[in-house]
Simulated scan of single mutants.
Amino acid sequence: MTDIFYETITPNRHLPFRLLIHDNGVAHRVLSHWHHSFEIAYVITGENTNFTVNGQHFDQSKGEVVVINPYEVHRLDLPTDHKRVALTVMLPNDILTASNIAIETHIQNRIPNDTQLQGYFNTLYQTTRHPATTGTQAEQIGLVYLILSDLVTHYSQADATKRTPHYSAQMDHLSPVITWIDRHYQEKITVEKLAGIANLSASYFAHLFQKYLNQSPLVYVTSRRLLAAEKQLLTTSDSLEAIAFTTGFPNVKALNVAFKHHFSQSPNQYRLTHQ
């Protein structure tokens, strides 16, 4: 696995969580990533196809709730589907703390047919069709707390968390490094530099990174650079020379080799077929 990155959850304005609506039907790729908190996905119409959670591949159908627990690696690769309407709720740790929910709590990943949860999500979606007033936002907050309460009450799996405290401690050890890479991937980066940020020896840091993120530190750096390069290819008309320079690749040849290995297309081919 060569495309995992860490994501920080930034709440919507005036809401204590991040609420995303997916209803434009366009193809959409979310590369493999993880974060410290819960992510909850729900499909109102259509499907979320090509969902992967911790290596398990499936299609999320209408009315199904999918819960991504803290530190679970996940990705999504959606084709064009103008019938698809879906919601994603991303919960920062502040909500968990305020609700006395431990980050070690593990919730069942797939919940296919809970009418109570379906009602909450359908109502939540309807609130997004209304003007963003204080009353609407209060209703959205209340609904998300009801969803979270229902999930923890009926679908938490205590037995599945036995290894989570140690696992989360190691991920917490690595997350400052991931954050630093996210901000400095354009620079020249060495394992020794990253190990210094983690206050570890280079050899132990590389071992820890490989064990918990299933890839070497420098492979991760390349993946982060490729993510930035992909975005620039699709959203700008910048030359490959400019993209290579601004994303940390030493030259266009290095960008071409890494990009083709990862996406099975050259950057120019990818730009032509995806714009």
Rank of each mutant, 00 (worst) to 15 (best):
E39P: 04
Y42N: 05
S223K: 03
I21K: 10
T153S: 15
H207Q: 13
N256Q: 13
I9G: 05
N113F: 01
N24T: 11
V53K: 01
V152R: 10
L31M: 10
Y145T: 13
S264T: 06
T49W: 00
K253Y: 11
V67L: 09
L240T: 06
H82G: 01
L143Q: 04
L240I: 07
H274F: 01
Q275E: 04
I101W: 05
W34G: 01
A242H: 12
K231Y: 12
T246S: 15
V66I: 14
Q215W: 01
M1H: 12
N100C: 06
I101S: 02
S237M: 02
P131L: 03
A169N: 10
T161P: 00
I95R: 03
I9R: 04
A198K: 08
T153H: 12
L233V: 03
K83H: 14
H184T: 06
L146K: 15
G119T: 13
L96K: 01
V221P: 07
L233F: 05
R110D: 04
D172M: 13
F38M: 07
L200N: 05
S37Y: 05
H173M: 11
R183Y: 12
L151Y: 07
V252P: 06
Q137P: 02
N268Q: 13
F205H: 07
H207Y: 14
N199P: 00
S216R: 12
H35A: 02
T134E: 14
L143H: 05
L76W: 01
F5A: 10
D150Q: 15
L87R: 11
D172A: 09
P176K: 09
A169Y: 08
T161A: 15
